[in-house]
Design a protein around this nucleic acid. Structure first.
Lengths: 128, 128
DNA sequence: CTTGACCTTCCAGTGACTAGAACCCTTATC
DNA sequence: GATAAGGGTTCTAGTCACTGGAAGGTCAAG
């Protein structure tokens, strides 16, 4: 399977798959012409990576999760620990963004949004 | 006022202030010894930038907002438009993170987190 | 005169790709 | 056999907003 087929099968751009090879997340073999060859197993790994990335896991977490997936003697507690830490980070980001949203919503509501120069948004930025 | 005083007065790291000069967000003068000199006005501008960054505005938005702040003939609608677009981006991010949180919370709850290898988290990553 | 705290510039790295250039290989058609 | 389209390859550089570190100049105190 060539790279564009692997891309179609996983939803990942070909460029991203090449990048994953560069950082040793995946090791496709090479054909006589130098083209990358992806096995069904590797396509499965790529789908795993795509899903993990979609859940927001960083590349190093993905590497760990992939290794755990391959390891039949893994402990589910190791997987859970990675997921739990990631969840905490997500919750922190949500909290930060939610605070921004509250402030912005408030300021936008207060701003007339007309031709005049007076603006509560700028006042807020200038003062606090 | 030297850079470390400006940093202390604004909460921004000195490195960040140098970076802001490099990208022409601020233009401190220089003393005879080559040190950057910050006026009270410039410290005020830096605080404005710090606050805008804290609300998540990107650097180019900050540049625009700073220019609008300096412009006495501005229309508040221009400020509001920038803030509104930014708010929409924040809401998109919150939505994406909230979806991740829901999935992760569900999976973490389902995972025993013990010494055994069976793990709903890996199952989810492998299948979907 | 030395020490230590400041300041300067410049280079490189972060995360996870992405764009683009320059070039090679395969397949189909004429 | 020529050619053109549509693969594939590598390499460099750019993204965003800093951040770390090295090498070296400046200043105030003792």
């Amino acid at each position: 399977m060539n790279i564009s087929d692997a891309a179609a099968a996983t939803g990942l751009p070909a460029k991203t798959i090449r990048y994953y090879e560069e950082i040793d997340l995946i090791r496709p073999t090479r054909g006589a012409n130098g083209y990358r060859q992806f096995s069904d197993t590797q396509v499965h790994q790529l789908r795993f990576l795509a899903r993990a990335r979609a859940l927001g896991f960083g590349i190093e977490d993905c590497r760990s999760l992939l290794a755990l997936w391959q390891d039949r003697d893994r402990a589910s507690s190791d997987v859970r620990a990675i997921a739990q830490e990631h969840l905490t980070e997500i919750e922190d980001k949500i909290a930060a963004l939610t605070a921004m949203r509250a402030t912005l919503t408030h300021l936008i509501t207060a701003c007339a949004g007309n031709d005049r120069p007076d603006c509560p948004i700028l006042q807020d930025l200038a003062q606090e």
